[in-house]
Design a protein around this nucleic acid. Sequence first.
DNA 1: AGCTTTGGTGACAGTTTGTCACCCCTCTCG
DNA 2: CGAGAGGGGTGACAAACTGTCACCAAAGCT
Lengths: 269, 269
Amino acid sequence: MQSINNSTELNNSTLASSELQDNRSNAPVVKLCPHSAGVSCGSCRLNELCLPIALSEGEMQQLDDIVERNRPYKKADHLYRQHDEFRSIFAVRSGSFKTYVLSSSGSGRVTGFYLPGEIIGMDGIADRTHANSAVALEHASICEIPFSQLESLSLKLPSLQHNFFSILGAEITKDQKIHTILSSYSAEQRIASFLLGVSSRYARVGLSPTRFHLPMTRGDIGEYLGLTVETVSRLFTALQKKGLISVDNREIALLEKDELRAIVGADEF
Amino acid sequence: MQSINNSTELNNSTLASSELQDNRSNAPVVKLCPHSAGVSCGSCRLNELCLPIALSEGEMQQLDDIVERNRPYKKADHLYRQHDEFRSIFAVRSGSFKTYVLSSSGSGRVTGFYLPGEIIGMDGIADRTHANSAVALEHASICEIPFSQLESLSLKLPSLQHNFFSILGAEITKDQKIHTILSSYSAEQRIASFLLGVSSRYARVGLSPTRFHLPMTRGDIGEYLGLTVETVSRLFTALQKKGLISVDNREIALLEKDELRAIVGADEF
DNA sequence: AGCTTTGGTGACAGTTTGTCACCCCTCTCG
DNA sequence: CGAGAGGGGTGACAAACTGTCACCAAAGCT
């Protein structure tokens, strides 16, 4: 069971060496480390899942020109913090992030997880201020896209505008699905639904939908799903005992996807 | 207490007579009834809260040209249904709507309420299919904006593109706030938060933030907040007994907003 | 009028979760 | 290398917060 680490493969390939000399989050654009120097939207393996879908080569080049590829982030580095001024959206190139809010009454609440090929930061578009904080769950690299430049370019490239509308729409659809989950699903249904969701998101970027690594802690999952850590832990083992999944710490294998779907009940995934 | 009906004022003014000869939902564009015939974005009282924010007169005219003002909807009329092809987004001109999904296991779940000046239908942008159904909670009128035309026009009018990005972003921010509410708030906090939310949305369109009419049933509220009808009912009366609100059926008065905020705890609203 | 829908409440219970406690393991870092 | 922190797993316990069921009143349609 030690061998389930297809997500790290993906990380390594794009993350490369990276000595991480300095850790200030919100780093300026710096010289890229050797291995990622050649990275451009055109050569990025995720370009069919990200902003550039269906862009011509010329168009992709124009997008490329406004993308800033910052140095890698390491675990616990912040991409931005709640109340920060909104400047950019970010595409996850490798690694993963979580977004969270700190309820003034102390305990934070995780509002989302972001895997490779997904976009972070759209919570700041409306009032130009980030409503969440975003933090790396592991070594990760991102493409930063300054929003004002994205807007300008979207005026020139219909496909880009269209893609961005779609991405925003997808975020809305996703959030509304979670609304349903939180307002009516039992703890077991939430966990099953969560696992199936992660599975299909990994599948989207070409990784195994049945064996994967969870980048987040049980605590994160609990906050995200409105459960306590203990409940999350217990349900993981319960599902394992039922033979539906196999759990080795954060290495997960979905053994009986159909039965997981049956638990969720709805016709999702 | 019978006099709390400022929301109906707004309806009457734009809704007008309307004989409602035929009730097929998804009605074609028809001749407008006399009182709303003159309505255009330029003359609409909501134009500073809706898509046309900060558009010049000429720009607003162009937007106006693609807006379809259908005949009014009456209670229980559907704007669209789950799985319908996505064609347009809709701006609520008067009245109100709810969106919901039917969990294949029967019971529906309300995913949102939409008041005047708000936009419905963004759940269909991503995969060109509506993820929710939208239904009128009372007599209502809407402006339908065909999405493909909106996209085209957005390429020509930077302000329009900007506004639409903002509206999408606002929807995302809103949905994430509900995520937090559902994942960690108690029933009482949810109700308090809900009332404050409705209050500020009414305030936005110039209605009283302290005395308003709820267009939805207790059941709708319950489904939205993940509570049962009984719990909603009980909490309404409990809050009334505490003197924080006054309830007469769907007529609500917020008497002690600060205490409501204290219940919610977070620094919202 | 008479029906349906909505809203309000009481009594009751109960099941799923949270709480608390403790243990083990791994990793990091001084 | 050893200590400490953080993550993960479980058992015992309860417990309270809601949901369930039942019934009634009021309102609103036709």
